[in-house]
Measured scan of single mutants.
Amino acid sequence: HNLTITQGKLFFHYNPKLCLSEIHKMEEVSGTKGRQERNDIALKTNGDQASCENELLKFSYIRTSFDKILLRWEPYWPPDFRDLLGFMLFYKEAPYQNVTEFDGQDACGSNSWTVVDIDPPLRSNDPKSQNHPGWLMRGLKPWTQYAIFVKTLVTFSDERRTYGAKSDIIYVQTDATNPSVPLDPISVSNSSSQIILKWKPPSDPNGNITHYLVFWERQAEDSELFELDYCLKGLKLPSRTWSPPFESEDSQKHNQSEYEDSAGECCSCPKTDSQILKELEESSFRKTFEDYLHNVVFVPRKTSSGTGAEDPRPSRKRRSLGDVGNVTVAVPTVAAFPNTSSTSVPTSPEEHRPFEKVVNKESLVISGLRHFTGYRIELQACNQDTPEERCSVAAYVSARTMPEAKADDIVGPVTHEIFENNVVHLMWQEPKEPNGLIVLYEVSYRRYGDEELHLCVSRKHFALERGCRLRGLSPGNYSVRIRATSLAGNGSWTEPTYFYVTDYLDVPSNIA
């Protein structure tokens, strides 16, 4: 807008934040220059609390790290170098490059900038070799853009010569660093050979998330399962459950009422301010606690030095998902009996873990797994792929695949051998790939016309006998059925096997 004052003059007093240069501009645009008398524009009460600059400061050096910015700028000295009290560095987070010096300023003089007072450097006698002032900004957020400017702080001049310097606002972004852990990993099994893994992005990506790394490792069953005799009275049979499938998407929606109208769909109840505040506090606490764990609990591995020492970490090797089922080394339970199943799973520490690289999504279907087997899954978020990966501390989750139908069934015939004193040795093959492992066998036998009897055969007993022995049988026709019990439950009964026990007292003698 054009402003013209045809008559009258300007009068400025007691404006401590208004620089004289701005008042002189007002004289020019209003056409009143030359009308004012000496005392109409006070030299001592206008701009006496402001830094009124008329020179431009330029930054000469900028260096960044993930949490620091090192700045240096060209030296500046007023005509009387004693008038320079120091520099004021202003900075704040700036997602967009549209910041002005006066953003967030209120009537009390406060604003949204963080201000650092910096002492002037030592003055050199040689004007050509003056030290460049600077400042190291610490405690910054990774991968965050900051708006920065600097200006001088000078003393009051009796001659009211307006001098000083100020830089333009520059924008500097800190470097990326390792992201925080992925949030809320959930693993479920939808079949006997697959596990579905879902997660949420890290709360602090500290860069642009480029991919996720998912490692999985087959877990050995508890050692007590191999040692305890679950045929003993009072000892509860062990059981394991597989990871249940995901709930429906509708039930997972946030901010939804727990109660549904019987007449149909209901609208979600909005969260109160107290609920939102509580969630923010919980989120802040979780982030602080995660940072504490990362800094205190997890110790970084030592990389190899120039002395030739090897990095103890196993090298990563990509495998196809079809090879995942046989990740671990199978060892027989008892070496003397080769027909026992290889369900003991000690994992070799030198073995390469299978892994998958996930790009542009937060889910993965891990296939080719062994049925009813526990897996430990390790999830890392990465925001750099080359020249070397920059990934987060791992988040861990466990899951067990679903049982395989008929995996616990005894394959092959049940054979028998009759000894003296009416002892019958029953023999059968253990299931080759049971659900988890076989903890015991149930032997059901009966003599024709009598009630059915049951015998429990422990895992250890089966390994020693290759089956079991029935003792003290009365003469007669017998039928026997056997079924295995694994961590997933009972298998199917075998087809009945028949044998006849004679009275050993009636056996004919070869003595003449």
Rank of each mutant, 00 (worst) to 15 (best):
residue 205 P to S: 09
residue 205 P to R: 11
residue 207 G to Q: 01
residue 207 G to R: 02
residue 208 N to T: 05
residue 208 N to W: 12
residue 209 I to Y: 03
residue 213 L to A: 14
residue 214 V to T: 04
residue 214 V to I: 15
residue 215 F to P: 01
residue 217 E to K: 13
residue 221 E to W: 15
residue 222 D to E: 09
residue 223 S to P: 15
residue 224 E to P: 13
residue 224 E to V: 15
residue 225 L to S: 07
residue 226 F to E: 13
residue 226 F to C: 09
residue 228 L to N: 09
residue 229 D to G: 10
residue 230 Y to R: 09
residue 231 C to I: 02
residue 231 C to Y: 04
residue 234 G to I: 13
residue 235 L to W: 13
residue 236 K to Y: 14
residue 236 K to V: 10
residue 239 S to W: 15
residue 240 R to M: 13
residue 240 R to S: 14
residue 240 R to Q: 04
residue 240 R to P: 15
residue 240 R to F: 14
residue 240 R to E: 11
residue 241 T to M: 07
residue 241 T to V: 15
residue 242 W to V: 13
residue 244 P to S: 13
residue 244 P to Q: 12
residue 245 P to S: 12
residue 245 P to T: 13
residue 246 F to L: 10
residue 246 F to R: 05
residue 249 E to T: 09
residue 250 D to W: 06
residue 251 S to A: 06
residue 251 S to V: 11
residue 252 Q to V: 10
residue 252 Q to R: 11
residue 252 Q to N: 03
residue 255 N to E: 07
residue 255 N to L: 04
residue 256 Q to L: 13
residue 256 Q to P: 10
residue 260 E to R: 13
residue 260 E to C: 07
residue 261 D to V: 15
residue 262 S to F: 13
residue 262 S to Y: 11
residue 263 A to R: 08
residue 264 G to Y: 06
residue 265 E to M: 08
residue 267 C to T: 04
residue 267 C to Q: 10
residue 267 C to Y: 13
residue 268 S to L: 11
residue 270 P to Y: 05
residue 271 K to S: 06
residue 271 K to P: 05
residue 272 T to S: 07
residue 274 S to V: 06
residue 274 S to P: 09
residue 275 Q to S: 06
residue 275 Q to L: 07
residue 279 E to V: 04
residue 280 L to P: 15
residue 280 L to H: 15
residue 281 E to P: 04
residue 283 S to K: 00
residue 284 S to P: 05
residue 285 F to V: 05
residue 287 K to C: 12
residue 287 K to T: 11
residue 290 E to S: 10
residue 291 D to M: 15
residue 294 H to A: 15
residue 295 N to G: 15
residue 295 N to K: 12
residue 299 V to W: 03
residue 300 P to E: 07
residue 302 K to F: 07
residue 303 T to A: 08
residue 305 S to I: 07
residue 306 G to W: 12
residue 306 G to C: 10
residue 306 G to V: 11
residue 307 T to F: 10
residue 308 G to S: 08
residue 309 A to G: 11
residue 309 A to Y: 04
residue 311 D to E: 13
residue 311 D to M: 13
residue 311 D to N: 10
residue 314 P to Q: 03
residue 315 S to L: 11
residue 316 R to T: 12
residue 317 K to F: 11
residue 318 R to C: 12
residue 323 D to A: 09
residue 327 V to N: 08
residue 329 V to M: 12
residue 330 A to V: 11
residue 332 P to F: 15
residue 332 P to V: 05
residue 333 T to P: 03
residue 336 A to C: 14
residue 337 F to K: 06
residue 337 F to C: 07
residue 339 N to Y: 10
residue 339 N to S: 10
residue 340 T to W: 14
residue 340 T to N: 11
residue 341 S to M: 13
residue 342 S to R: 14
residue 342 S to F: 12
residue 342 S to W: 03
residue 343 T to V: 06
residue 343 T to K: 12
residue 344 S to L: 11
residue 346 P to S: 11
residue 346 P to K: 10
residue 347 T to L: 13
residue 350 E to Q: 06
residue 351 E to L: 15
residue 352 H to L: 07
residue 353 R to M: 14
residue 353 R to E: 06
residue 354 P to V: 06
residue 355 F to T: 09
residue 355 F to K: 14
residue 355 F to L: 09
residue 356 E to N: 13
residue 357 K to V: 11
residue 357 K to P: 12
residue 357 K to Y: 06
residue 357 K to N: 11
residue 358 V to F: 06
residue 359 V to C: 13
residue 359 V to E: 10
residue 360 N to T: 12
residue 360 N to H: 11
residue 361 K to I: 07
residue 362 E to D: 15
residue 365 V to Q: 12
residue 366 I to L: 12
residue 366 I to T: 01
residue 367 S to Q: 11
residue 371 H to S: 13
residue 371 H to P: 08
residue 372 F to D: 03
residue 373 T to K: 14
residue 373 T to G: 08
residue 375 Y to N: 00
residue 377 I to D: 00
residue 379 L to S: 01
residue 380 Q to H: 14
residue 381 A to T: 12
residue 381 A to E: 02
residue 381 A to G: 06
residue 381 A to I: 01
residue 384 Q to V: 10
residue 384 Q to A: 02
residue 385 D to V: 08
residue 389 E to R: 14
residue 391 C to S: 01
residue 392 S to D: 02
residue 393 V to W: 13
residue 394 A to I: 15
residue 394 A to P: 07
residue 395 A to I: 06
residue 395 A to N: 10
residue 396 Y to W: 06
residue 396 Y to C: 06
residue 397 V to K: 12
residue 398 S to E: 04
residue 399 A to C: 11
residue 401 T to G: 01
residue 404 E to W: 12
residue 406 K to W: 11
residue 407 A to V: 06
residue 409 D to L: 13
residue 411 V to S: 15
residue 414 V to C: 03
residue 414 V to M: 04
residue 414 V to I: 12
residue 415 T to G: 05
residue 415 T to Y: 13
residue 416 H to F: 06
residue 416 H to W: 06
residue 416 H to Q: 09
residue 421 N to I: 05
residue 422 N to G: 06
residue 423 V to R: 11
residue 427 M to C: 01
residue 427 M to V: 07
residue 429 Q to E: 15
residue 430 E to W: 03
residue 430 E to H: 13
residue 431 P to N: 04
residue 431 P to W: 00
residue 432 K to A: 11
residue 434 P to M: 04
residue 434 P to E: 02
residue 437 L to R: 14
residue 437 L to G: 05
residue 438 I to W: 03
residue 439 V to Q: 10
residue 440 L to V: 09
residue 441 Y to L: 00
residue 441 Y to A: 01
residue 442 E to S: 06
residue 445 Y to H: 10
residue 445 Y to F: 04
residue 449 G to C: 05
residue 451 E to M: 13
residue 451 E to P: 11
residue 452 E to C: 12
residue 452 E to M: 12
residue 455 L to C: 11
residue 456 C to L: 02
residue 457 V to P: 00
residue 457 V to N: 02
residue 459 R to P: 05
residue 460 K to W: 14
residue 460 K to P: 11
residue 460 K to R: 08
residue 461 H to V: 09
residue 461 H to Y: 12
residue 462 F to N: 07
residue 463 A to H: 08
residue 465 E to A: 09
residue 465 E to Q: 15
residue 466 R to S: 12
residue 467 G to S: 05
residue 468 C to G: 02
residue 469 R to Y: 10
residue 470 L to T: 02
residue 471 R to Q: 13
residue 472 G to V: 07
residue 474 S to Q: 11
residue 476 G to Y: 00
residue 477 N to V: 02
residue 478 Y to R: 00
residue 479 S to E: 13
residue 480 V to R: 01
residue 481 R to H: 03
residue 481 R to D: 00
residue 481 R to K: 14
residue 482 I to E: 00
residue 482 I to D: 00
residue 485 T to V: 03
residue 486 S to E: 00
residue 487 L to K: 04
residue 488 A to S: 07
residue 489 G to M: 08
residue 490 N to H: 00
residue 492 S to N: 02
residue 492 S to G: 14
residue 494 T to L: 03
residue 494 T to Y: 01
residue 498 Y to Q: 07
residue 499 F to D: 00
residue 499 F to Q: 01
residue 500 Y to M: 05
residue 501 V to A: 04
residue 502 T to D: 06
residue 502 T to Y: 01
residue 502 T to G: 09
residue 504 Y to Q: 14
residue 504 Y to N: 05
residue 504 Y to C: 03
residue 505 L to P: 12
residue 510 N to W: 07
